[in-house]
């Protein structure tokens, strides 16, 4: 699922435009599987699976695998449709450089929700 994020984001000119001033690498953890997502000017240029020895990233988002799987449904049920909903239920941990995260929040939400574009209900 997560590997498809790059193609899905890069194929959507509106998402890329929203992120055009963002170049960063963030950590995404799906359960115990870590990935580094590298973004340059709104395009996802690589998604590298761990394990990592000394990973460098701006911020990290960590949630159990089953939470991400429900989050990526076409129409997720209440409590699962947004990273803030996961966060408020204590299922998602957000840490690191909050400035990069908050300043680009709409774009980052679009990137994380990209797998829904291909999900079947």
């Amino acid at each position: 699922m997560i590997e498809r994020i790059a193609d899905l984001v890069n194929a959507d000119p509106n998402i890329v435009r929203r992120g055009r001033y963002l170049s960063t690498t963030f950590m995404l953890e799906i359960g115990d599987a870590p990935y580094l997502v590298k973004i340059i000017e709104g395009r996802v240029v690589s998604i590298t699976p761990g394990p990592f020895v000394t990973p460098s990233y701006s911020f990290a988002l960590r949630a159990p695998r089953d939470e991400w799987e429900i989050f990526w449904r076409k129409i997720p049920p209440p409590g699962h449709n947004d990273i803030f909903a996961l966060f408020k239920r204590g299922k998602l941990k957000i840490e690191g450089d909050m400035h990069t995260f908050m300043a680009n929040l709409l774009y980052i939400k679009d990137v994380l929700a990209a797998p829904r574009k291909e999900a079947v209900q």
């Binding site: 990273i83 803030f84 400035h99 908050m102 929040l105 709409l106």
Partner: peptide
């Protein structure tokens, strides 16, 4: 409070876009 509301008003973050970002998930996906 479940996030730091200070992000909603500071000159180095677009006030309008971060506000929309904070509330966007409160809208039903339908």
């Amino acid at each position: 409070p479940y996030y730091d509301v200070n992000w909603l008003h500071r000159p180095d973050v677009s006030v309008g876009e971060v506000s929309a970002g904070v509330v966007s998930g409160l809208i039903s996906p339908t």
